[in-house]
């Protein structure tokens, strides 16, 4: 087994081996993991969860794709500049608390309200969600960034 793998690698001149199972499964699992990460993120409003765990899970979904394919394919699948994601995340995390100055309250004071939506009924709107989006994006992008950096170093 090991021998044949080595053989194909040298013959085709590529390091990434073509693993059909992993690639197929990861396409499916990716969506499940991403959905779970969103679920965790929104659950964090009242129950355990939140931006940090959600962000880590989202990053792990992307890392799964990264393992199954390679960096180029991942860039083709998701043409997002992760540095920009990181920056937007930081901006949300720092900007939303600062905006509370507009309400005349100290830094980090959150504003919240309840609105009536036709189908769902009463929904709580909270500025902490926006802050948490910032955390989510920052954590996801940073973790991915580090993994990519470590992965690149091998070549």
């Amino acid at each position: 087994m090991k021998h044949t793998l080595k053989k194909t690698e040298t013959e085709k001149g590529q390091k990434q081996m073509n693993d059909v199972f992993l690639q197929f499964v990861s396409k499916v699992v990716f969506f499940i993991v991403i959905m779970f990460s969103f679920n965790l993120f929104f659950a964090g409003h009242y129950t355990p969860g939140g931006g940090f765990v959600g962000g880590l899970l989202a990053a792990s979904a992307l890392i799964l794709l990264l393992i199954a394919y390679d960096k180029k394919t991942l860039q083709k699948m998701l043409p997002i500049d992760f540095r920009m994601v990181l920056t937007v995340g930081l901006l949300f995390a720092a900007g939303i608390p600062t905006l509370s100055f507009l309400f005349g309250t100290p830094f980090f004071t959150h504003q919240h309200t309840y609105i009536e939506v036709p189908v769902f009924g009463e929904i709580a709107l909270h500025s902490a969600v926006l802050f948490d989006i910032g955390v989510f994006l920052t954590v996801a992008a940073t973790s991915l960034f580090i993994i990519v950096l470590v992965g690149e170093a091998e070549n």
């Binding site: 940090f52 973790s143 170093a153």
Partner: peptide
């Protein structure tokens, strides 16, 4: 502790990258 874990996570990640870089 949650805060401290996040910080420790970032630190460990950075040191790992640095270790690879300095090894090369």
């Amino acid at each position: 502790i949650l805060t401290a874990i996040v910080i420790a996570f970032a630190l460990t990640a950075y040191t790992l990258v640095l270790a690879l870089r300095s090894y090369r």
